[in-house]
Design a protein around this nucleic acid. Structure first.
Lengths: 359, 359
DNA sequence: CATTGATATGAATCCTACG
DNA sequence: ACGTAGGATTCATATCAAT
């Protein structure tokens, strides 16, 4: 195995994003979350309807000459991200309409493969004070595999569990980062102008990483990614240029308590053991010529040899036989068939778990 | 005025999109809605969980060699759209993650100015059958002015009215086009693989066009844009290559009934008449040294000359005076002040409407 | 007629571990 | 790396038949 010496693990590297990235070995990171400058192109002051000045993003780090300069900057850090990402890793990038189309186009051109564009639908957005457009109530996240056809981690069942046991969709309703969660500077003002809510990072990390994975955030800010990574038992690397952000992030992450549960460990993703009929027969869990019934107790077919079942017309796998009965193309035979034990129906699905336990 | 001879008004031009566009005069169109091919890049067959083949988009018109070919195609029709659009017109483009980032980037590069990216959040999306990603439950619309700083139509109050009198946001919850609305071919199958819901076009047209405006759709399909344009008293031009789509669209639009109400006419957008205090005084609606009260009947200030009001400290406009009392920078004085008529408080806001009516 | 249940379907970048 | 067998996977609506 290649023992890569990866620097900055569970640390914050203060410095230029691309320069620090260049020190990280290729294919060493499982997950990347990037919240780059949005290049908002705001001009002048925006007044609230009350007449106060709205405190938006006016930071120096959000200023670029033009689209071309912004594109070039993004191409640099995106290429480095692609290099440090493991072949089966994935990357999330967040933006809004000012920059996300440039990022998406760039990423496609670089060979990233978009898995989803996820909409962060803000439940409490800043209104459009002047009534000149629709209230901009969302931001867009791009979730990409390293390349077309590349593998990636997706904890489908964990996401489903967190969504009232329904398949999670591409639109997420999450509130802004406000209240106690919003980090304040010594002056009582927000410490960072674009701090992301932990709920957003929790979903991202639980969806697309495993316990012990390494999560990289090249625009670490006040460290939401690091805090959530630590909370759920992931490792992190933070890169941040601004010293005051680094300071805030460090003390924040120190205070984080680790949570270990079925969500963070990926326990919900476990798959049933792969056991063959042959093995079950050999171990005595199935009998020769065993009769298979459906849930209602209707006789369907008989074990034929040690691999297939027969309905006297033909010999098929349990899956194909279940599908045949249901007039479908595919069906899971383990879930369809029952056998008789002590005059009662017993699901064959239990057998593979028992076999796995006792062997 | 320039009397442009615009062809194809309230007709469907059958032919190549760019070729037909080239026949339309520059700066002649108020609104464009474009639903181009998405370049879905699907491969092979997708099976439903039941084992049946899912009938997605396999049309020839959605096939392109690669991103470059797609980009070049889009650049051509987008440039023509920009040419035919009036300086104060706007354009909507719809897509999903396969193509929208390319379109957005292209449009920014061409000088279009993004006003909003609007999310069509589908209430009943097709699930992800295999559980491999988040269910793709939305599409993205780009709404752009012709250039930075260009004017555009936005019927803010109409949108607010339709959203339970709250400012409309950038995420719209709208269902898929199904049921009776979905046009069927003679075989009973969907006539077009990607027919858009009328609810979507209704919102777009009511938000960003005026009665009598000309709405262009360069990818007309089965004519949802034309049907909704006609319904709300707008003119349309449809461009569609496929003869069978044109046929369906024509008969569809013929059956459309025109609806004329406060939404379609833009009546909700009317602004209060601009009347000066001087004019009100001269016409006798205000008296010399008239006393101004707040809603509670508390005396606030006195008419000072014929342009300002005075609280004995200073002489200000009614707006600045209202703001001063409320300790704000700005406030609408017309809505704040009342006068005494027949021993009752009467809003001064009424005066400018009365003046307008009788003069 | 109201209710229930089975079936159909919608812009889709839709499997993976093992040999 | 590549082919193949095993087996895991769906939500909201509309329609229509059956009760």
């Amino acid at each position: 195995m290649n023992e890569l010496k990866i620097p900055f693990i569970n640390e914050i590297a203060q410095g230029d994003c691309v320069q620090v990235l260049s020190q990280i070995p290729s294919k060493s990171v499982d997950l990347i979350f990037a919240d780059p400058p949005y290049f908002m192109q705001t001009e002048g002051e925006l007044l609230r309807t009350s007449g106060e000045v709205f405190s938006g993003v006016t930071d120096e780090w959000d200023k670029f000459e033009n689209f071309q300069a912004y594109d070039e900057f993004c191409k640099l850090w995106l290429k480095e991200c692609q290099r440090v990402l493991k072949d089966n890793g994935s990357i999330w990038v967040i933006g809004s309409f000012q920059n996300i189309f440039r990022l998406g186009c760039l990423m496609q051109n670089l060979g990233f493969w978009i898995l989803n564009d996820v909409i962060w639908n803000k439940s409490n957005p800043v209104p459009n004070f002047k009534g000149t457009r629709f209230c901009n109530a969302h931001e867009t996240l791009l979730w990409c595999a390293k390349s077309k056809g590349a593998k990636y981690t997706f904890n489908y069942k964990t996401m489903k569990f967190l969504n009232a046991n329904k398949q999670e969709k591409s639109v997420w309703n999450i509130g802004l980062c406000i209240g106690n969660e919003r980090l304040k500077g010594v002056n009582g003002k927000k410490a960072h102008s674009t701090q992301k809510p932990e709920a957003l990072l929790e979903k991202i990390i639980l969806a697309s990483s495993k316990e012990g994975d390494l999560v990289l955030d090249p625009f670490f800010g006040t460290g939401t990614t690091g805090a959530v990574a630590k909370k759920f038992g992931r490792n992190y690397i933070g890169i941040e240029q601004n010293e005051s952000y680094v300071k805030v992030a460090k003390s924040r992450i120190e205070k984080v308590n680790i949570v270990r549960n079925e969500l963070s460990t990926g326990a919900l993703e476990s798959k049933p053991p792969r056991v063959s009929l042959k093995a079950l027969l050999k171990a005595g869990f199935l009998r020769e010529n065993e009769k298979f019934y459906n849930k209602k107790g209707e006789f369907i077919c008989t074990l034929d040899g040690d691999e297939k079942v027969s309905d006297k017309e033909e010999s098929l796998s349990i899956h194909k036989m279940a599908a045949k009965v249901l007039k479908k193309t595919n069906h899971n035979g383990w879930e369809y068939f029952y056998i008789l034990r002590e005059n009662a129906l017993s699901p064959i699905d239990e057998l593979r778990y028992k076999y796995n336990q006792f062997s």
